[in-house]
Design a protein around this nucleic acid. Sequence first.
DNA 1: CCGGTCACCTGAGTGC
DNA 2: TGCACTCAGGTGACCG
Length: 291
Amino acid sequence: MPELPEAQVIAADLDRALKGSVITGITVWFSKALRPDDAERIPGHVLEGAERLGKMIRFRLSEDLNLVCSLRMTGQFVFGREYEDGPEKDPRTPAARIRDGRAPPLPHARLAFRFKYAPGKEDLGTLFYRDVRKFGRLTLFEGPDFMKFKRDSVARDPFEFDPGAFRELVKSSRKPVKTLLMDQRSISGIGNIYATEILFASGIHPSRPANDLSPKDADRILANSREILKLAVSGGGSTIANFEAPSGKGSFQLFHKVYGKKGENCPVCGRPLSGSKTGGRTSVYCENCQK
DNA sequence: CCGGTCACCTGAGTGC
DNA sequence: TGCACTCAGGTGACCG
C-alpha cells in the first residue's frame, strides 16, 4: 500500500508513540507475516525507534536487532484494546464493539504487539498489524545482516540521491523510465501512484526508455520527485482505498493530477488521459503533454 | 540483463 | 440478489 510518503507518516507516528518502550509480547495469527522463530526473539527488547527505509518501516530494537516491515498493498498498523482471546475471537458484533469502546472491530489482524510503554508515553494499548491481502512481511535482522539487506535491496531514496548520481542511474538503464522509478534496488520509495504523478509533472511518457532521456530530463524527474513526495508527506500521504496511519487518513489523493483519472481531461491541455500497462502496472498519462 | 507473466490474497465495484 | 469478472498503492520467481 504505502509508498514513501505513507511509510514516512507511519514511521513517524510509531516512533513518537513507542520510542523507548519495551515489547513485552507478540501474538502471531498469520505466520507468513512474521516467522514464529523471529517472533519469539523479540519480546524483552526495547523499541529504540521507528524509521522509514525506502517504502518500508524499520523498527530498531535493542541489541542490534532490526525488524523490517514491508507493508505491500494493504498492510497497516493500528492501536487498540484487545480481548484475552484476541480480536478474531471477540464474540460481539462490530457494532457492539464500537458501542462499548473497548476494542476496535478488527478483522484481518495478523499480528499483535504488546508494550510496557516508556515513562511519559501515553498507553495506547496493543499495536495490531492488519493486512487484508496478506502480502505484507516483517523480517528480523541482526546488525550485520541488516546492513547487507539494506545494501542489496534498498537503494537511496529521491532525497538521498544527488543529481549527478541520478543522471548516471538514468543513463545506465534501458528500462521504461516508470519501471526504473519503481525499482526499489535502483531508487527507493516510489510506487505506482507517485511514479505516475512524477512523470506527468515532468512531461515524460512512462514507457520511454530511461537511457533515452537527457540529463535535464533526469534533473527534472528528481526535482519533481522530491517536490511531490514532500508535499504528500505534509498532506499525510494518499488515501485511495484503505490507507490509514495510526494518526489517521492522508489527504494527498486530493492533489493527484492523473493517477486514477484515466479518461478524464488532462489538467494541462484538456485532452482525455490515456491508460496502458507498463511493467504490469497501470499507467495513466497524457499523450499530448508527456513525450 | 531485460521485459513479460504469474503467483501471492481478499474485497470492492461493475455489468448482466 | 447472485454470479462472473475486473481491478487494486507491491514484489519475487520464473520463462523466453
